[in-house]
């Protein structure tokens, strides 16, 4: 972007720690995240992978401003974040649509809050519905849509706000493999057209490599923190199904998995307990 110093990260989490009240131990605390520093450059697509329950959503909540970290600061384009991150769009892990609104009404929620007039918002909403491949489903209610379609609505709902930073929490993990690859490619197309900074959470290493410029691996909880960063210099534009066959892909996969393996086993052991 002109005039913008590219050395200033779009999003920077510095020295973040998050404590929660411990379960089954009144008065005690559980440190979900500790010593976490993560920066994302303007236009960069960064994936965060980590074992289940390690604190990925917690980090994203901190980045969105929904959760105030117990320690550390968040900076958005160099500005210290207080309150909600207005530059960011957030696609949640769980279903977040309003079930009492139709798909189109859901898509235009943001512009409506911002006071855009009805006709203009509708036009914009229809445009976005078409862009995520949902033309014709404007009047459908969320419970009439499939899981993949609901994710598309959520995507349009977020992108219509034109956020500079995109936060996505395992957006496709509930989808079947085909739908998932389709949506990953669509996401890459949309991102390619208008490069935003993306912080993408996933527990699927292949997805992380296929989509990102950089992959950050997290340790298992408690006290989760980054344990490795890996630049992914695979050519773009990419097709997520084909890129998996590249030799470089397998090499990166092996490399990152090596770092992650132990943590995943730790996380798995904790989950069983």
């Amino acid at each position: 972007m002109p005039g913008m110093d590219s050395a200033v990260p779009a999003l920077a989490l510095r020295d973040i720690a998050c404590h929660f009240p411990a379960r089954g131990n009144p008065g005690g605390t559980y440190t979900a995240v500790r010593d976490s520093t993560i920066t994302i450059a303007p236009g960069e697509f960064v994936s965060i992978v980590g074992p289940t329950g390690c604190g990925k959503s917690t980090l994203l909540n901190v980045a969105s401003g929904l959760l105030k970290p117990s320690q550390g600061t968040v900076e958005v384009f160099g500005q210290k974040l207080t309150g909600i991150n207005r530059q960011a769009g957030y696609m949640f892990q769980a279903d977040a649509l309003m079930p009492w609104r139709t798909a189109l009404e859901n898509v235009v929620v943001g512009p409506e809050f911002a006071g855009m007039d009805r006709a203009q918002a509708d036009r914009l909403g229809r445009d976005w519905m078409a862009r995520v491949g949902l033309a014709g489903f404007e009047k459908a209610y969320p419970h009439h849509l499939s899981g993949g379609m609901r994710k598309r609505v959520a995507l349009a709902q977020m992108l219509i706000m034109d956020p500079k930073v995109i936060l996505m929490d395992e957006p496709f993990s509930a989808l079947d493999v085909q739908t998932r690859q389709l949506m990953e490619n669509e996401l890459l197309d949309l991102w390619q057209a208008d490069r935003k900074s993306v912080m993408f959470i996933t527990h699927d290493l292949e997805e992380a490599i296929a989509l990102s410029d950089r992959v950050i691996a997290l340790a298992a909880g408690p006290g989760t923190h980054p344990i490795g960063e890996f630049a992914i210099d695979l050519p773009r534009p990419r097709d997520v199904a084909e890129i998996r066959h590249l030799e470089e892909f397998s090499r990166l996969h092996a490399q990152i998995w090596e770092a992650l393996k132990e943590e995943v086993l730790k996380g798995y052991a904790q989950g069983k307990r």
């Binding site: 909600i84 949640f92 649509l97 309003m98 009492w100 809050f113 709902q157």
Partner: peptide, 26 residues
């Protein structure tokens, strides 16, 4: 739903807008 609520806040809802478009319909 706390997720729907958080989502509305991320989309820029003010307190009155939250009341009108999330709490009451829900």
């Amino acid at each position: 739903s706390p997720v729907t609520l958080a989502n509305a806040r991320m989309l820029g809802a003010s307190r009155t807008q939250l009341l009108r478009s999330v709490y009451i319909p829900s």
